[in-house]
Design a protein around this nucleic acid. Structure first.
Length: 864
RNA sequence: GCGGGCGUGGCGGAAUUGGCAGACGCGCCGGACUCAAAAUCCGGUUCCGAAAGGAGUGUCGGUUCGACCCCGACCGCCCGCACCA
């Protein structure tokens, strides 16, 4: 058997594709367009199996759509700014720019080895000044449109690394890299007004019907829109001039206003501050809250505590009803109004608090079936549906109607209004880092914050930044920040903050449509290519990147730069690549390559290959350096070739689920590659174009032909529905069928059917194993290259069986099968069934009560 | 705590969405080839049973002629959010 040699064939075909410029994306109004994009990589320097899977997935789509006649855009770039480069600089004394571009060179070579159908002419890195200069232009446009602002904000400050950290970079109250306890600091920060788009960002989720429900739900929860009532409780005698009008609160349950027990304010509420000025006990309580829990685990278990201020406000529906004002540790200043009215009977937090301080608990929602005279709330607040009672003008209403009436009444009284509140906050985009996109503004003593004119762009990073120590290399550069004010010409200082790297990735997909345009986005190119038809990446970006990109797209659409309002029409979130973990008895992690596995019965054992020392087989986990359970792609490519590696990561699990890397699995894929090649190699040379000769009367040949047409149909559907693993299983199945109809000694008809089947097969495997496909295609005399060949068609007349084999059940248990014409009606089928001797034997001594026939599917006889 | 998802052979997973459970691959067992091993090829492989047959999709119950699929309760695992009023 001729062994397939990927080391020879794979580079050969990659060169052929490159020579033919096969994957250049062209605007072609005559063809439908398809934009497929995988989330672009951070240039860490090394390709890992996760990349292989991500890009192989996208490549299947790109190649498939291309074969289906689409004009395909499938680009690649680099998310190249960010902390790792600065850390490398600090640890190894290298220049972040050189480090990053070196990594890009290395990873580009590895990615190209994967044989991806990518238009490399569109490649760019976000750290290219040609890119971030355009980003600065977009920043200024957003600034002009009032979507950028600067304010003082509390931030997570890492005192060792001397930078602001994003919330997700704070782990249990400590900086993820330095391990230092993170401080809350007030800093002037740049913000994008993403909250302006909060409503749209929620509403438009409904249009994203090719997104996973899970991601849409996560975004919806993250944005956290709630509708309610914002209103003011007046003081009888205002204690402070600042609160002459009263206390503003926010509630989503205005229907429960008659169940009010007290009014609560956050410990950092301005009113609490005023109270504390003349009340040392209040000051002490507030101080205590400030030093309270930081970590999530602590917050969860923290007891509710409060301090009664001695101040009283008036209930909006009853001037004689006075409610005391408490400072409470469970109220958040930065949500709603930072103050609430408490209804303990119907809110668990309020109830916990009320029980602790012996405050009134007044039920006002009566659960269905409960008696108003006896219903009471003990330790569990009632939050279900019911009828309002004990509530004056709201009595008898359902909850939703009561909410409306209560809001109407409060509005009529001029005390407040219905309001929508979001959990989403504005996007803090400033980072005190040197390796990022500079914010294009200057600070002038006379004119304040001054945005630069377009002519001053790009604001380029200096080449000689010094990254040897923590902190912002840009801020400490001796000369860079000194400049003149574009307004008054006087001395000014450049902004030394750079933009969050999520800004870089919030519009790169639009830049790919014309990466060399003089404008940030070429409108015509974007109008042709956008939106991305299929976006592919990890679930970890479910909110952050995917939300930011949606916001930016809407903002750019409003700025007249894009026509679409959503960037990604289809989203697919793929699973991770995992591997078993191995540990020595002492707990040290071991690499898969050091392990020898044995099987005893059903038990798998592992030992250290070198010494025979027993090894503990641990959980299957995401490949990671720290657990040493990684497998280097280049080593796999070297042994089995790229196609086998691609095939395996696509074949073993559904794409949305994690795939477990196993050496046995990739060997199975390698075996398939060889078996495929062997099959093509055994076929006598023929002409694909002529391979539609008659096979009539040759049952074996006809069977093979029918199977091959069914395969084409199944593969087409499998790819369109992202069920690649099932599709690949069909390829394996069909290969086994080909093996059962070998070319050697085959009839004329079988040879013709084989030729036709092989022609289709070469094209069907092309999205998964493109190099092998070309080699096979050439072997059976295919015209040109597979990349230029159309997707095979199937004949519906052949895929629809004339006869069906129907299983026959008696009382739900399978007792035999019959053959019936396709589409046969119940009476016809029943006759065949009852004539069947095997079925008759099974029915001996039984009385038939009913015969159920499901057309073309199954027969069930109910008998007793 | 709230929200979402998932439980199928020794393992990864199939099952046309209410119609033959276990496709395909891995592993394992047996055989062929070989002096031998590897590779390759052929066959077997849910469990119990010699067979006939029976049981079986986390557990218990329900709907149905028929349930991995739908409903209810429970158990277990995973993910997201986390005092959001």
């Amino acid at each position: 058997m001729a062994r397939y040699n990927p080391k020879e064939t794979e580079p050969k075909w990659r060169q052929a594709w490159a020579d033919a410029d096969a994957f250049r994306a062209e605007i072609d109004p005559a063809r439908p367009k398809y934009y497929v994009l995988e989330m672009f990589p951070y240039p860490s320097g090394r390709l890992h199996m996760g990349h292989v899977r991500n890009y192989a997935l996208g490549d299947v789509i790109a190649r498939f759509k291309r074969a289906r006649g689409f004009s395909v855009l499938h680009p690649m770039g680099w998310d190249a700014f960010g902390l790792p480069a600065e850390n490398a600089a600090m640890e190894r004394g290298v220049d972040p720019r050189a480090w990053t571009y070196d990594n890009i060179d290395r990873m580009r070579a590895e990615l190209k080895q994967l044989g991806l159908a990518i238009d490399w002419s569109r490649e760019f890195a976000t750290c290219d000044v040609e890119y971030y200069g355009q980003q600065q232009a977009l920043f200024l446009e957003l600034f002009d449109r009032g979507l950028v602002y600067r304010r003082e904000a509390t931030v997570n400050w890492d005192p060792v690394d001397q930078t602001v950290l994003a919330n997700e970079q704070v782990v249990d109250g400590r900086g993820w890299r330095s391990g230092a306890v993170v401080e809350k600091r007030k800093l002037n920060q740049w913000f994008f007004r993403i909250t302006d788009y909060a409503d749209q960002l929620v509403d438009d989720l409904a249009t994203l019907d090719r997104w996973p429900d899970k991601v849409r739900l996560m975004q919806e929860n993250w944005i956290g829109r709630s509708k309610g009532l914002r209103f003011t409780f007046p003081f009888d005698e205002p204690p402070f001039a600042e609160f002459a009008h009263g206390i503003e609160v926010y509630t989503t349950r205005p229907d429960t206003l008659y169940g009010a027990s007290f009014v609560g304010i956050a410990p950092d509420h301005p009113l609490a501050d005023l109270v504390a000025q003349s009340d040392p006990k209040a000051a002490a309580f507030i101080e205590k809250c400030r030093h309270g829990a930081v970590s999530e685990a602590e917050i969860e278990t923290q007891e509710k505590e409060g301090y009664a201020t001695g101040l009283f406000v008036t209930h909006p529906f009853d001037p004689d009803w006075k409610l005391e004002v408490w400072i409470a540790n469970f109220i958040l200043m930065d949500y709603g109004a930072g103050a609430i009215f408490a209804c303990p009977a119907h809110d668990q937090r309020d109830l916990d608090f009320a029980r602790k301080y012996a405050l009134p608990v007044l039920p006002v929602v009566l659960p269905p079936g409960e008696d108003p005279a006896t219903f009471d709330v003990e330790d569990e607040a009632y939050v279900g549906p019911g009828a309002i009672y004990n509530s004056g003008f709201l009595d008898g209403l359902d909850i939703e109607t009561a909410k409306e009436r209560a809001i109407e009444r409060v509005e009529a009284q001029g005390q407040g209004h219905g309001a929508t509140v979001f959990r989403l906050r504005d996007w803090g985009v400033a980072r005190q880092r040197g390796w990022g996109c500079p914010v294009p503004v200057v600070h002038c003593e006379a004119d304040g914050v001054v945005p630069l004119p377009r002519s001053a762009l790009p604001v380029e990073l200096p080449k000689d930044l010094e990254f040897g120590k923590p902190g912002n290399a840009l801020a400490r550069h001796p000369t860079w920040k000194h400049t003149t004010c574009p307004t008054c010409g006087g001395p000014a200082t450049r902004e030394t903050d750079t933009l969050d790297t999520f800004v870089d990735s919030s519009w790169y997909f639009a830049r790919f449509t014309d990466p060399t345009a003089a404008e940030p986005i070429d409108r015509a190119a974007a109008d042709y290519w956008m939106a991305v038809d299929q976006y592919i990446g990890g679930i970890e970006h479910a909110v952050l990147h995917l939300l930011y990109a949606r916001f930016m797209t809407k903002a750019l659409a409003d700025a007249g730069r894009l026509s679409v309002r959503e960037p990604f029409a289809g989203l697919f979130t793929q699973g991770m690549v995992t591997h078993e973990t191995y540990r020595r008895q002492n707990g040290d992690w071991l690499e898969p390559a050091q392990i020898e596995l044995t099987v005893e019965g059903k038990t798998r054992r592992a030992k250290l290959a070198e010494t025979g020392e027993p090894v503990v087989i641990g959980d299957v986990e995401k490949m990671s350096k720290s657990k040493r359970n990684t497998v280097a792609p280049e080593e796999i490519f070297d042994v089995y070739g790229v196609d086998a590696a691609r095939l395996f990561v696509l074949s073993d699990s559904p794409p949305e689920r994690d795939v477990q890397w196993t050496s046995g699995g990739v060997q199975g894929a390698w075996r398939f590659v060889n078996r495929v090649w062997d099959e093509f190699d055994s076929q006598p040379p023929g002409d694909v174009g002529a391979a539609v000769g008659p096979v009539a009367g040759d049952e074996a040949a006809q069977g093979l032909r029918v199977a091959s047409h069914k395969l084409v149909k199944a593969m087409t559907e499998a790819i369109e529905t992202f069920r690649f693993n099932s599709g690949i299983a069909r390829l394996y199945e069909f290969l086994n069928l080909l093996k059962a109809h070998p070319a050697k000694g085959a009839s004329e008809g079988v040879l013709v059917a084989r030729q036709e089947a092989l022609s289709a097969f070469a094209r069907l495997i092309a999205p998964f194993t493109p190099h092998l496909a070309e080699e096979c295609w050439a072997r059976v005399g295919g015209q040109g290259m597979v990349v230029d060949a159309p997707w095979p068609a199937f004949d519906p007349a052949l895929t629809a069986d004339a006869e069906r084999i129907l299983p026959v059940q008696v009382n739900g248990k399978r007792r035999g099968e019959i053959t019936a014409p396709a589409g046969a009606d119940a009476a016809e089928v029943e006759k065949i069934v009852l004539d069947d001797p095997e079925i008759a034997r099974r029915l001996e001594g039984l009385t038939i009560r009913k015969v159920i026939v499901v057309k073309d599917r199954i027969v069930n006889i109910v008998a007793a």
